[in-house]
Amino acid sequence: NKASVVANQLIPINTALTLIMMKAEVVTPMGIPAEEIPKLVGMQVNRAVPLGTTLMPDMVKNYE
């Protein structure tokens, strides 16, 4: 099973992601793959992301 990106803390709306906000975890359903973490740094979330939430592509602005 591949790990996904999971919020390590509450991430407020429009916050630019940093490494300490994210962790890799095997979850179902899968979200953004953990190997994308370096690419996510500096990208903004378009909603508040609660602690423990799996990051999905539609939660990150301009994620492709």
Rank of each mutant, 00 (worst) to 15 (best):
N8F: 14
Q44P: 15
M56T: 12
P33I: 13
K39W: 04
Q9T: 11
A16Y: 07
T28F: 08
N1K: 06
M21E: 04
A34H: 12
I37H: 03
Q9H: 12
T28I: 05
G31A: 05
G31E: 02
M43S: 11
M21F: 08
A48M: 14
A48D: 11
K2W: 15
S4M: 02
N1C: 15
E35F: 03
I11V: 13
Y63S: 05
E64N: 04
I32V: 15
N46K: 12
V26C: 15
K23H: 14
K61P: 10
V60I: 14
G52H: 10
L17N: 00
I11A: 01
T18C: 12
I32G: 00
M43I: 06
P50C: 14
D58T: 09
E35I: 04
E35S: 08
I13P: 09
M21G: 05
P57A: 10
I13G: 14
P50M: 11
Q9G: 13
N14H: 09
D58Y: 09
S4H: 02
T15N: 10
L55Q: 01
V6R: 06
I13L: 12
G52C: 12
M56C: 15
V26Q: 07
L10S: 07
E25L: 04
L40F: 02
V45T: 13
P33E: 13
N8P: 03
A24Q: 10
T54G: 04
P29I: 12
A16W: 05
E35L: 05
N1Q: 14
L55N: 00
V26A: 13
L17I: 03
N62A: 13
G52K: 05
I32W: 02
A48E: 05
V26S: 15
V41I: 12
V49S: 02
L17Q: 00
K61Y: 09
I13F: 07
D58K: 09
I20V: 12
A16D: 06
V41N: 03
M43A: 11
N1D: 15
N62V: 04
V41W: 05
T28Q: 08
I32P: 01
K39P: 13
V5Q: 01
N14S: 10
M59W: 11
I32A: 02
K2F: 15
G31T: 01
N62F: 04
K61S: 13
N46I: 09
V41H: 10
I20K: 07
Y63A: 02
T53R: 08
M43E: 03
A34L: 03
V27F: 10
I13N: 13
P57T: 10
V6A: 03
I20T: 13
Q44W: 05
A34R: 03
G52D: 15
V41K: 07
E36P: 00
S4P: 00
T18I: 05
Q44E: 08
Y63L: 04
A24I: 08
E35D: 06
A34C: 15
M21T: 11
E25Q: 07
N1Y: 14
G31V: 03
T15A: 07
I20P: 15
I37R: 09
Q44A: 04
I11D: 00
A16T: 08
M59D: 07
D58E: 07
G31P: 00
Q44M: 06
K39F: 07
P12L: 12
P29R: 02
V60F: 02
A48G: 07
T54Y: 02
T28K: 02
S4R: 02
N62G: 15
P57H: 12
E36L: 07
V49Q: 02
N14A: 11
P12V: 10
L55F: 14
I20G: 06
N1S: 14
V41F: 09
P38H: 14
Q44F: 06
I37D: 00
Q9I: 12
P38K: 12
E36S: 11
L10I: 13
N14Y: 04
P33S: 11
E25I: 04
G52L: 13
V45M: 09
M22D: 01
E36T: 08
V49H: 02
N46Q: 13
K2H: 15
A24P: 06
P38M: 02
L17A: 01
L40R: 00
M30T: 13
K39M: 04
D58R: 04
P38V: 03
M22V: 13
V27G: 06
M59G: 09
P29Q: 15
S4E: 00
N1I: 13
V5C: 07
N46T: 07
A3W: 02
Y63P: 03
P50F: 12
L17Y: 00
P29N: 14
A16H: 06
M30I: 14
L51G: 13
G31L: 01
G52T: 04
T18S: 10
V26I: 03
D58V: 07
M22S: 01
T15H: 11
E25H: 11
L19R: 05
A48V: 11
K61W: 11
T18A: 11
I37S: 13
K61N: 07
P57D: 08
V26Y: 05
V6D: 00
Q44G: 03
R47M: 05
P12G: 06
E64V: 12
I13S: 13
T53W: 13
A7H: 01
I13R: 08
L10E: 12
I32C: 06
K61A: 10
P12R: 05
L19D: 13
Q44N: 06
E25W: 05
P12Y: 11
N1G: 15
M59A: 08
V60K: 01
P12T: 12
N46P: 04
P57S: 13
L55D: 01
